[in-house]
Design a protein around this nucleic acid. Structure first.
Lengths: 144, 144
DNA sequence: ATTTTTTAGTTGACACCTCAACTATCATTG
DNA sequence: CAATGATAGTTGAGGTGTCAACTAAAAAAT
């Protein structure tokens, strides 16, 4: 049953992917963490940080810091939600909205690299398994 | 063609996996980076750092630092290779050898969590695709 | 045989993430 | 309505990784 560890190749692939994105993003003076946040906001502007945490299953501390960087670079603004003052509403600036096609394209072109010579079936299975893995793990982690 | 981004779920799964390992390793006062190095040495003791870099396609700086931690914790010793004095030969200590079953088991049990409810076919495809992704990316990264 | 290039490892700067502890606000409930 | 608990976000400490610049040694080239 134990051919090769999935964990190992998961790590290797993930690092490679980050390097690829990083390289493409270098000229824009923005990191992958920041890009991911912008991408969520391109889909749904005006959400709070917690929603981004949920979207990527990422820690709120990490999101908080990336958001802060984006703010400093004038890609987003942050203001308290009047209806629930614990929340901060994140909004894209004009600068960020203008960059949308470019940033989307970076992700698309990276995705194209990943998918080279892979069949739709393989990609579909990969997506399905990746999701299942995360679910399996969090079922263990979240119990207690 | 563009259903969902593989990169996204790759990241999510990878983070989950790291958290799982980290949790299991906590009681041993050792991190995932260090564990990975021990695992390679369990397969082949007495290799140099570069071999570990190749094995995981990981940066030599990262390996150097993890190795240093393992040395401080007396899991490995490091001495220059007499035949090629650029290299450092890494050797497991008695302490590390004694831990082998336990550390191997941690990886095995984590792997078991990942694989829950996945078929052999799915696992095989996942492994194949992960490798292909890395290869695809490095073909782009390594050209120039 | 000397110069040049490649390889192995180290170090500093920094990106990204987690965890735990903290504040502030909202929701529950006794 | 006051106490208790849950939720949103921040901060400090630390793990893991990249990149680039650096030594030192070996290999290749002129």
């Amino acid at each position: 049953m134990y051919k090769e560890p999935m964990g190992k190749y998961l790590s290797i692939a993930k690092r490679a992917h980050s390097m690829l994105l990083q390289k493409k993003l270098k000229q824009y003076n923005i990191g992958t963490g920041e890009l991911y946040i912008l991408i969520v906001l391109y889909k749904e502007d005006g959400i709070c940080q917690q929603k981004i945490c949920d979207h990527y299953r990422i820690n709120k501390a990490a999101v908080g810091r990336a958001v802060h960087k984006l703010e400093k670079k004038h890609f987003i603004t942050k203001k308290p939600d009047e209806k629930d003052r614990r929340k901060r509403i994140l909004s894209l600036t004009e600068k960020a909205r203008k960059m949308k096609p470019e940033f989307k394209n970076i992700l698309r072109s990276a995705e194209k690299v990943l998918r080279k010579d892979l069949s739709d079936k393989e990609i579909e299975t990969f997506l399905k398994v990746s999701k299942k893995i995360s679910k399996n793990i969090h079922e263990v982690l979240d119990q207690n």
